[in-house]
Amino acid sequence: LAHGAGGKASRRLIEGLLVPYMMGDKPTELNDVAYIDADGRRLAFTADSFVVNPRVFPGGSIGELAVNGTINDLAMGGAKPLALVITLILEAGLATSELEREVAAIAKAAQRAGVPVVGGDTKVVEHGKADGLFITTAGIGLTDPRVSLSSKNVQPGDQVILSGPIGDHGITVLLARGELDLEADLTSDTRPLWPFVESLIEVAAPGLRWLRDPTRGGVATALNELARDAQVAVMLDEESIPVRPAVRGACEILGLDPLHIANEGQFLAIVSPEYADIALKTLRSMPGGENAQRIGEIQAEPKKAVLARSRYGGTRMIDMLIGDPLPRIC
């Protein structure tokens, strides 16, 4: 199995194997959250697993990722995160100090986000049966009745807003592995996103169509899924996409596209044109949202495509990430 990198391969795995077994032929939109209606209120439910090498990197660690990743999935579903449960799978031999550090990181992240960890489990497996520490989470949230988020709401003319610079997390983790001698002043962007979503709902609820945190597979994969699900085109303005020079530099050497690099603290918002300005202004007024940008627009044609127009380089086609991109330039 080589489905870990996000993008096309893992989508094939999910749609080819998991969906038919779990959900029958019922047509369904594949989202990170599921909604459950209870007593007139709509709950959002999500589960996630975390594996990362190395476990600690500038700006975060696996424990922090687990908390933020889970509550961000809820936030992207338009739900205020209420509580988490966390399961740890430990490989025998993991240093107690390291375990303690991650538990502390989990507690700190949960506290920062104001979301309690209400339960969980711990399993220890034999040495060699796991890679140090795996974390599995589940989260529950309460949706805000003022918004309805779905790719089906997305229409030509809608604006694409990005919360801040992309690629920080993916490149930070890659550099933290120590396989590359690069001077880069980078930290992971992992953080809770609910405060941003909450503010957006306050000012732009009727214009909010779709939210997504572009984690594995990056912005390119998230937008390709949107284009496919909504049967639209996403036209990006290449120069407006915020990328830090260190990320751009690393991508240039590695032969990667920043649009394919994972993020843990950014999100994409599709907003109707009349709410785009207020949404952008609101994000920029918040700490950590200063670099939010309008990066593109939804178009009717060509359906299912993501394109990036640059003032000087013409229009590129942006694919989903397919594993590790292979060289193709002759």
């Binding site: 240039e252 050497i253 590695l254 032969g255 991109p325 060289p327 193709r328 330039i329 002759c330």
Partner: peptide
């Protein structure tokens, strides 16, 4: 080929 296409550009 370190960096794939990056090696073709550089």
């Amino acid at each position: 080929l370190p960096g794939g296409d990056a090696a073709a550009r550089m």
